[in-house]
Nucleic acid binder design. Sequence first.
RNA 1: GGGCAAUUAGCUCAGUUGGUUCAGAGCACUUGGUUUACACCCAAGGGGUCAGGGGUUCGAAUCCCUUAUUGCCCACCA
Length: 875
Amino acid sequence: MNIPSQYDANKVEDKWYDYWMTHNYFHSIPDQREPYTIVIPPPNVTGVLHMGHMLNNTIQDVLIRRARLKGYNACWVPGTDHASIATEARVVAKLKDEGIEKSDISREEFLKHAWDWTHKHGGIILEQLKKLGCSCDWERTKFTMDDDLSESVINVFIDLYSKGLIYRGYRMVNWDPVAKTTLSDEEVIHIERTDKLYYVKYKIEGEDGFVTIATTRPETILGDTAVCVNPKDDRFSNIIGKKVIVPICNRVVPIISDDYVDMEFGTGCLKITPAHDINDKEIGERHNLEVIDILNDDATLNHYGLHHEGKDRELAREDTAKELEALGVLIKTEDYTHKVGTSERTKAVIEPKISKQWFLKMADLAKPALDNVMNDNIQFHPAKFKNSYRNWMENVRDWNISRQLFWGHQIPAFFYGEGVNDFVVAKTKENALILAQEKADNPNLTLNDLKQDSDVLDTWFSSWLWPISVFDGIRYPDNEEINYYYPTNDLVTAPEIMFFWVARMIISGYEYRGQLPFKNVYYTGIVRDKQGRKMSKSLGNSPEPIELMKKYGADGVRVGMLMCSPAGNDLPFDEALCQQGKAFANKVWNAFRLINGWEIADIEQPKSSKIAIDWFESKFQQTLIEIEDHYSKYRLSDALMATYRLIWDDFCSWLLEMVKPAYQQPIDSMTHKTIIAILENNLKILHPFMPFLTEEIWQHIAVRTPEEALIVAKWPETKPINKNLIAEFDFAAEVISGIRKIRKQKNIAFKDAIELYILNNENAAKTFDVVIDRLGNISKLAYTDAKVEGALTFRVKSNEYFVPMKGTIDVEEEIKKLTEELNYTEGFLKSVQKKLSNERFVNNAPGQVVASEKKKEADALAKIETLKASLASLG
RNA sequence: GGGCAAUUAGCUCAGUUGGUUCAGAGCACUUGGUUUACACCCAAGGGGUCAGGGGUUCGAAUCCCUUAUUGCCCACCA
């Protein structure tokens, strides 16, 4: 078999993914084993894979593959989200391109277009995840608008309504004039920007005087219904109760007083527009002010805008300012920096708007969800996010769950009359009719009299049920699957959606299952470019994931992504990391090639091989414990790095070099067999990170049945560690380093054997002398009682090593080297002795620490002695 | 405006309860290398007053105070 020296990921990755699919390894059904469950954060159904998905899903796959190897019944449920506002916006845009306005077509027609779009683009992202190697249980793929999930959403709405937790309210909400829908507070992003602050004077009715107000939105003057001052403000005490004339519209409104007004800000005098500001609305309610809404749904002015009617609010702002100036009531403008709410989706400036919406009462629901995170029943990684979680949960507000969109779950409320309460909530129109006849006490009502609320539910109102609804645990709370898989183990998601999604899943978990939805939440960071900017389509700074995988292999990209991304930390992405991942794949590949190329013979095992293997087995166990510890703390980068170093340094650079047979010599069968077993263990612990490469090598090593595939192999068992052996090896490694250093200094090629004499002051074990012999290419290794003349020297601890030189030794250089080392050691001794002569140290420090200092002192003294002797011998 | 976190080598980060293993890792860098797995490699090496200042302690990267800088979250000041 001819095996190329370069590992070609592109040639093998699809092959193994197909193999895994064919043999159904990803599919899970409840059985005797303990389950290990992850539900995917469902990406937008029409979305495409970006770097954030790459990171997030790599992490999930690492966790799920490791769980599978550890013998759990691993189940990773994939799926997509209908993403109501995002998808609808895209469909609207697409229709617009075709010359169709959303307002010109019926709800049914629009939904047909939306479904067409979904069927056409839906699921692309899931196919892309397969390229990354994600081992999702594809048979379980769900969509938030599947029939069963939709029914779950409706059931929950009805249930919460019947519990009195859902109500309909006339409230000020966040209005997105582009999408023409309300948004929840969480969907509003506050962005700092500089606007103008306009100072405008209002004439006092029946007098010559004026009051001056400051506003950033002069166009809302047309909706003013009062002017307000602080009751404690002496400047205005004489005008409270009088009336002013609002410019342009000449409306006569009262001057009122309210503690809300900040005397220091602007002029201390505030205009009140209850329809367009939440504070103004509250003041308006306290003072029974009229509410005048001057805007249409698209943020153009309505008839209250008078001659500005039809203008967009931005244009109206400029024009009213001009008009005010012309009227001579605009005193001045100044720059003013403040935060403006914008829509997360459309980027439009949010308009506070009073409208009738559906709300979910959150306060009581939030309690168990808060407690169980604070007491670590649900663990956040990193834990620092508990702070912001608590902050939000303690101040949680009612959730505006209705959206003025078509794409989504239509609210199951049916109106039968014009009255505020003339509606019923029911699963079907038929059920609604019965309820309505009862409620209205009117048996003559017919289906035609019922009109379903046209709003749909917030997307997150389906996402918050995801860990339950994917197992159909809402409709059938006692079904086998929900009982088996729920609660899930880990959730891997971005901190940005902690409030949108994580908090609400926890809430619904306690409400509908009486327990937590997942045990751990791993918060990923944001993927940034080298300049620290967030990767985004608009900046064009995001690499194309599929291209990256072509270039570096999925395994290389996975390693690259995980190399430097501890939980909760942003990931400064650099393609060089993927290159490193690719190089590592090649390294492992070549280690396999080496082993694979050996000719096996029935000969005796060399001592050096035996001891090297014993050492590595202990080293492996030590690293395995370290790796398990990292995993338990969700430190995947550290787990990867420990694996990387074990394989590259300990396995390749040390073990294979120690056991490698001489050129064209065969290897003994015992060593070969053990090395294969070691390689297999290495592949197992590497598999979660590099699934394709490891399966490829695994299947090269031997002919395997489907049951023997690496993906379903058994994680290595833990065995006792021989710590002495590891320490002895570390010592020997230092000796070998010393030899290499001398070779380099003196330009002695490796093929030229040298002699090594050892003055064994340390009384170190000689276990690894056979290894030193091999890796140092030593022709004669001997212990001596006296210094060797005419030799180069180096020290490890207080052992002294001599390499006799045939040629001349540069005495000057040797003296210089020795003197430097002597000076350093004497300085070190001084600091140690200073510590030991301090009575308070000797009395207060633990005995162990004092003893170690004494040992340091003795070692330093011994070393100084040998250094001095060497210097003396050199003259 | 309120809260949280961070600041350790050129870069990205470890550093558990203060004390053997405390100043580390990977990458990058420098130097040498056609040793028959791998130049996507091997070997050797340089590099940090642990952000600044103060304090507690026999002893501080680690605990406390303070200053500076950065990042994130929350918040209705026109």
